[in-house]
Structures are given as structure tokens and as C-alpha cells.
């Protein structure tokens, strides 16, 4: 009971030790809440089974003069614990369905999220606007595409207080998008699009990494999510777009220069 009591009031100290990570987005918090209830039920069941086992082992150990009772079973008892096991599982299923809404349905963005995302081609999240990010996994890096055409690798920048809908793609093999504090993981499978969401309320950096074996450098396929205030994010994403455009121009110039020096044919057919 002590454990149950401590768990019920468990703070962040338990997260990542006996409960999943949480504290980044409300879906991760809901999963952690559900997990805690299941953990408590499981702990009680385990203590009952292990306790009975140890008690029987001590109480009924062979002693002189002690004879084992030749009991072959008890239909009523057996039906009772079959029913009890089924009942516990029905309760667990009901708990899961009741907490499902908070986990799968994207929360609405906050008031200061800015209005730029509610465009025609981006269907808004329920009741409000959301930011759609295209996340693409490839060996061995994550790429993030922003609505304005900017993109980044490894680090995703998002505004706080905004619902972010993540559309997950893969270019090559299976990967899995997982930032523990921002909710569960979802596989990136070539030929399919997977979805999840998160909403971060205060600025911070959240890390995760690819969770499906994708080849040699699977361990280095890190994902970072940096949450910044909405205004800062708008600046950043505009600057990022500009930088990409500049780099593209510089690249084109370099190409043209190279072509004029050595002849296009040689570059194309080395």
C-alpha cells in the first residue's frame, strides 16, 4: 500500500524509472497517467501471487508427520479466479478507452499561437489551428519540412502553445519517430504516412531518437525538438527559408562557374 500511495502522488522523479517520460506534451502526460493505474493494479496482482507462493512454500514445506492433502482441484474456485482475471482485464480495457481521447485527439492550440497556420490547404485541428510538420526519416537523419517551404535536419523548431501535427514519412527503410516527453512513437514506413501530434506549453528542448532498427547508424539517428515562443519561431522559420534560398543561389552560381570552366559535358559524364 505504501508503494501505491507513493505512486499515486508520484512526481517527475519516477518518470523514466518506473513510469514513462512525460511533461512535454499532454498526450505523454495522459499515457503516463494510464500507465500508473495499470502499474498499481499489476503490482497488487504480483504481490498477491508471489505472496501466496512464498507463504505456501514456507507453510507447506515437508516436515515429519505432515501429509499432503490429495486435492485435485475445485471447479468453483477455478471459475472464480477465471472470472476475476477477466474482470480485471475488462476494467483495464475500459480505462484505456476512457483515456484514449486525451491521447489520440490533438489538443487545441492556445490563444497566442498566431493565426498563420489556418490556411486553406491545412485543415485545422479541432476547434483551432495547428502547425503541420512533415517529418521524413532516412538513413540516418530526420528531415523536417515547414509550411513556408523551409526545412531543417535533426532539430525541429516549433512554437510553444501550438498544436503540432506531425506527418511521418520515410524515404528508405522503416524508422520510428519517438521523443518520449512528447508522447508515443510512430513508425515511418516507406509508402505510408503516419501521424501523431504534440503541443508544448513552455520553451524547452526535447530529445529522442529513431526507435526502429534502420541500419548501421541507427544509434546516431537523433531527433531534437526545440520549442520557442511563437514570435521567435516565425522569425526563425523565415530566416531559415532565406538562408536556404541564399545557399541555393550560391550553389547555382558555383555550378555555373564550374560548368564554364571545365565544360558541362565533363561534369555530367565524368
Amino acid at each position: 500500500m505504501l508503494l501505491v500511495g507513493r505512486l499515486a502522488g508520484a512526481g517527475p522523479a519516477w518518470a523514466g524509472v518506473i513510469t514513462p517520460e512525460s511533461g512535454g506534451s499532454s498526450n505523454a502526460d495522459s499515457i503516463e497517467g494510464l500507465y500508473k493505474i495499470v502499474l498499481i493494479i499489476a503490482t497488487v496482482i504480483f504481490c498477491a501471487v508471489a505472496g501466496a507462493l512464498v507463504f505456501f512454500l514456507v507453510r507447506y514445506r515437508a516436515r515429519p508427520g505432515h501429509v499432503a492433502s490429495q486435492i485435485r482441484g475445485n471447479t468453483r474456485l477455478e471459475l472464480a479466479w477465471t472470472g476475476a482475471a477477466a474482470l480485471i482485464l475488462v476494467v483495464l480495457a475500459a480505462l484505456t478507452f476512457s483515456s484514449l481521447h486525451g491521447i489520440v485527439t490533438p489538443a487545441a492550440s492556445g490563444d497566442d499561437a498566431g493565426a498563420i497556420f489556418a490556411t486553406v490547404d491545412q485543415p485545422p485541428a479541432p476547434g483551432d489551428h495547428a502547425l503541420h510538420i512533415k517529418v521524413t526519416g532516412r538513413q540516418f537523419v530526420w528531415r523536417f519540412d515547414y509550411p513556408n517551404g523551409a526545412y531543417s535536419y535533426e532539430e525541429l523548431q516549433v512554437p510553444i502553445d501550438t498544436t503540432v501535427i506531425v506527418d511521418i514519412y520515410s524515404l528508405d527503410v522503416n524508422h520510428s519517430w519517438w521523443v518520449p516527453k512528447l508522447g508515443g512513437k510512430f513508425d515511418a514506413i516507406p509508402g505510408y504516412v503516419n501521424h501523431t501530434w504534440f503541443k508544448i506549453t513552455k520553451p524547452g528542448v526535447f530529445t529522442g531518437q529513431c526507435a526502429e532498427l534502420c541500419g548501421q547508424h541507427h544509434a546516431q539517428m537523433i531527433a531534437t525538438v526545440r520549442a520557442v515562443p511563437a514570435a521567435a519561431w516565425e522569425n526563425w522559420v523565415a530566416t531559415q527559408k532565406q538562408l536556404i534560398a541564399q545557399a541555393g543561389t550560391a550553389d547555382a552560381l558555383a555550378h555555373a562557374k564550374l560548368n564554364s570552366q571545365v565544360g558541362a559535358g565533363q561534369v555530367e559524364n565524368p
Binding site: 494510464l34 495499470v38 504480483f46 483495464l92 484505456t96 508515443g184 512513437k185
Partner: peptide, 20 residues
Amino acid sequence: LGGLSGVMLAIFPIDWQVHG
């Protein structure tokens, strides 16, 4: 113990966190 963690994994929102 393994059976009980198996029930946890059967609950798919929990599995989303701990899968893989």
C-alpha cells in the same frame, strides 16, 4: 512479472511509449 508487463504492452497507448 513478464506476464504483467505483457498486459501493459497490450494496452496500445502505453505500447506507443515503450514499444521498441
